[in-house]
């Protein structure tokens, strides 16, 4: 009997299953946040009334697809792809940001992607996830404050800074930490069997 290990596809290239799963994660992320934002009005309304930059603390929810997608797929471009698709999904559902949501999504994805690229797509532990979330949050804050379509373009300097700090924190905690926890949970259920992230649950958190 001849035994031959199956030739592996270069682990950097995307398979069909990577594409479809990444896209659906992005879309499911959109639905979750859509459902969430219906209930979150109770939280965001007082924030807005008191000090509008505080709403930056909720921004991390939008960036979950970027970090979660990368933690699961583990292929270059996953953060960028997932976040852009999530933004496209939002556009289809009717976005208050109009077509500019596509650019915002791209920029947020880029913020996370850069962090994973710095670690050459080899590290997917908790610190890297937090950094990636913060990166996405930072880019989100910058986009909202300085891009012409940004919603906070007319804020004065100090308020912009406060907003950016809040989005970065929110990105790290909501998008970074939650995605990392979710990936470990998903790995335990066995649904990640065909991805390198199938072992995420047994990987150490910090190395």
């Amino acid at each position: 009997m001849s035994t031959a290990a199956i030739k592996k596809t270069t682990s950097r290239s995307w398979r069909v299953v990577d594409i479809v799963v990444a896209a659906l994660i992005a879309i499911a992320g959109g639905i979750i946040f859509w459902a969430w934002s219906q209930g979150a009005a109770a939280v965001s309304a007082p924030m807005n009334a008191v000090y509008p930059p505080l709403t930056g603390l909720l921004a991390g929810g939008w960036m979950i697809p970027a970090v979660l997608g990368m933690l699961i797929i583990r292929k270059p471009g996953a953060a960028l792809f997932c976040e852009t698709i999530a933004a496209t999904g939002e556009l289809f559902m009717g976005s208050q940001y109009g077509a500019s949501v596509l650019f915002s999504g791209f920029v947020q994805g880029l913020g996370a992607e850069i962090i994973f690229a710095i670690f050459v797509y080899r590290k997917f532990n908790l610190p890297v996830s937090l950094l990636a979330g913060a990166g996405a949050g930072l880019f989100c804050g910058l986009n909202d404050s300085f891009a012409p379509w940004g919603w906070n373009i007319a804020y004065s300097g100090g308020d912009k800074l406060a907003y950016i700090v809040f989005t970065a924190i929110s990105g790290a905690v909501i998008a970074g930490a939650l995605s990392w926890i979710a990936t470990r949970g998903l790995a335990r259920t066995g649904v990640l069997a065909s991805f390198a992230s199938r072992k995420a649950a047994s990987e150490p958190a910090f190395s």
Partner: peptide, 18 residues
């Protein structure tokens, strides 16, 4: 079948025979 993502460890899928 196959084409699972691997990182070069013993976890790779295995085929035998034809």
């Amino acid at each position: 079948l196959g084409d699972a993502d691997d990182d070069g460890e013993a976890a790779e899928s295995d085929e035998s025979g034809s």
